[in-house]
Design a protein around this nucleic acid. Structure first.
Lengths: 223, 223
DNA sequence: AAGTGGTCTAGACCACGTG
DNA sequence: ACGTGGTCTAGACCACTTG
């Protein structure tokens, strides 16, 4: 009934990080050193630090060490924010220069996309790839799909956002420069018209070491 | 530069699950069997399935096996939904009988809570613990804190929600019956008055096997 | 009794960054 | 040259569920 060693170790570091005892950027001892200090094998330490990584508290850098993460969060103002251009969205949350690259093409709809839009498989749709970076650091990459007869989201009445951790697509993984086996934060958006039709879907990937948590800020309506 | 074995195995199962090839509830082969099938050690298989678990695609049950997760999602309608009572919120998303248990007490504010509310450490505040279950299955547990001179959220003008994966507090872990080392989904809410004062904060924990993804659905305002 | 997932050990090699 | 994190192997014991 007692706590496994890796949970105890993870809990100890989690507490020290949240208490501010270990500030952002601090390097943790190496796996070998923590292992020796707690008299466990290094596998146990790895499992403990994996737990901290999946909470976004630390960040392991290959051949350098494990560091306490800085946690800028991602502020999403709903729903107004969703209609902004990426330039505006990122411009307000960063002081570095933001670079946005867009690439538009026509593709054949996959079965899933065709069903989403009420089209036939193979019908052509618009595919926009948007890459955002701050300086040389990638921030996000998104795939946006839309029927040819719709442009933008001006017809949209409802937005659904689903937040998940996912294995990135190869294209997303390459742009975000995440290692194999690293998960990314994915925001899946569906824009619906007033009649219920889906007029646009978008998958936006973010590296987890930049945005470990998502913050939704919303104005409350009078009841 | 080639993909590690555990990523390849995780990717294969992720694809088959998402394609519907492996429907919800399907039992996966045991670690030993997958290991043999892919000619790797069982540690590699564990790492692969850990990856799937952190994506919410599968759920390992001690001494039974690993199963494809059913993914009911949690629909949160923002912002209207936030003002509903838990009875209404859960009642609409389930057909089982929902049980809500509330416990109210006065406690001394910790340093962090005192600072949040603009009080002095040790000042008394209201603490409400809310436990929700469906039948005998726990759904959520929350800690809500509020200054004594405020009741409810009628003064609230803005709501901020932060979504994270966290190691649960011991009380939350016990109620949700999650094992040691299991993370929970935590929604941290801050209700702000029009003048910027924080009038209520709440930490709500959910087991990850019930809600692997969060869906925010919002009406778009005319621009 | 057999099989399951959970935990843990004690080794090993690799690629790469730092001193 | 050394230390780092990343990957992988081949064992082991435990507590429990299932047939």
């Amino acid at each position: 009934m007692t706590e496994p060693a890796y949970v105890a170790i993870a809990g100890e570091y989690a507490r020290r990080i949240r208490h501010g005892d270990l500030p952002s950027g601090t390097q943790l001892p190496s796996y070998a050193e923590i292992a020796e200090r707690h008299s466990v094998s290094d596998i146990v330490v790895r499992k403990a630090l994996d737990l901290l990584q999946s909470q976004g508290l630390v960040r392991a850098v290959r051949r350098r060490g494990v560091f306490v993460a800085d946690r800028p969060n991602l502020i999403r103002i709903s729903p107004e924010r969703q209609m902004e251009t990426p330039e505006v969205t990122f411009g307000t949350e960063s002081d570095g220069e933001i670079n946005i690259d867009r690439h538009t093409e026509r593709v054949s709809a996959t079965d899933a996309l065709a069903e989403t839009f009420g089209l036939s498989p193979g019908d052509e749709i618009t595919h926009v790839i948007t890459r955002a970076s701050e300086g040389r650091r990638p921030i996000s990459i998104s795939d946006t799909y839309q029927p040819l007869d719709v442009t933008g989201t001006s017809e949209a009445a409802i937005l659904e956002e689903t937040l998940t951790d996912q294995l990135p697509t190869p294209v997303h993984a390459e742009w975000l420069r995440v290692g194999p086996g690293d998960l990314v934060k994915m925001v899946h958006q569906r824009f619906l018209a007033a009649d219920g039709r889906v007029i646009m879907v978008s998958n936006v990937s973010y590296p987890r070491d930049r945005y470990d948590a998502f913050v939704f800020r919303m104005a409350l309506t009078e009841s």
